[in-house]
C-alpha cells in the first residue's frame, strides 16, 4: 500500500473521529470547564509529515466538520487551522520532529493559536461568543490538552503506518563494488 496515500487517509479519518469525539464525550469539559479540540494536534502531524495540499485539505474538511456540529458560522474554523498548519509546514525543516519536547511545544502553540484566531474572527465579524476572564482558563486547558494529545497522536500514527505500510528496507552490509569476482 502506498504510504503517502495511507497516511493522508488516516489523517482525514482521524479528523472525522476527532470532531465526533469533541461533540460526543464531555468528561473533560465537566471536569475542567473546557472541551479539548484534537484538530490542531492533528494539524501539527499533517504539517510535519504531509504535503501542503494535505494541510489545506485537513483545514478545509476538518473545519467544515467541526462547524457543522457547532453553533459556529460554517467555515469559520478553516482559516485558523490552515494558518497553524502553514506556519509549521513552512519551517518544518528546522523542527526536530522526533523530539517529544518539540511535539509538546508545537501541540501547545497550535492548540492555543487556532481557537484564539477563531475567536478573533467571530468577534470581528459581529458575532457574540461567550467571552470573558474564563476564556483564558479555557484556552489554557485547550492548549495543555492539545500539547498532551500531540505526542500521543504521533505515536498512534507511527504505529498505524508501521502496521499497514511497507516495512523499511533493511540496509545490508554487502557492497556490490567490493565483490570479489572469481575467474573462470
Amino acid at each position: 500500500m502506498n504510504t503517502t496515500w495511507l497516511n493522508n487517509t488516516l489523517i482525514i479519518f482521524t479528523a472525522f473521529l476527532a470532531v465526533f469525539w469533541a461533540a460526543s464525550f464531555h468528561g473533560v469539559r465537566h471536569l475542567l470547564g473546557a472541551q479539548i479540540d484534537l484538530l490542531p494536534p492533528l494539524m501539527v502531524y499533517a504539517a510535519l509529515y504531509s504535503s501542503l495540499g494535505m494541510v489545506a485539505s485537513l483545514a478545509f474538511v476538518g473545519g467544515l466538520w467541526f462547524d457543522s456540529l457547532s453553533a459556529n458560522p460554517l467555515g469559520v474554523s478553516i482559516f485558523p487551522l490552515f494558518v497553524v498548519g502553514l506556519l509549521i509546514f513552512a519551517s518544518r525543516e528546522l523542527i526536530l520532529r522526533d523530539q517529544i519536547f518539540a511535539r509538546l511545544t508545537l501541540g501547545f502553540a497550535a492548540s492555543l493559536l487556532a481557537p484564539v484566531i477563531c475567536l478573533l474572527i467571530l468577534l470581528t465579524t459581529g458575532r457574540a461568543p461567550l467571552f470573558g476572564w474564563g476564556t483564558l482558563w479555557q484556552l489554557f486547558v485547550m492548549a495543555v490538552g492539545g500539547a498532551v494529545a500531540t505526542p500521543v497522536l504521533f505515536e498512534i500514527f507511527g504505529w498505524l503506518n508501521r502496521a499497514f505500510g511497507h516495512a523499511a528496507v533493511q540496509q545490508s552490509s554487502f557492497r556490490p563494488d567490493r565483490e570479489i569476482r572469481r575467474g573462470r
Partner: peptide
C-alpha cells in the same frame, strides 16, 4: 450531541 466549541452553549 453537545457543542464542541467552548464559546457557545448548544
Amino acid at each position: 450531541l453537545r457543542e464542541p466549541a467552548n464559546w457557545w452553549r448548544t
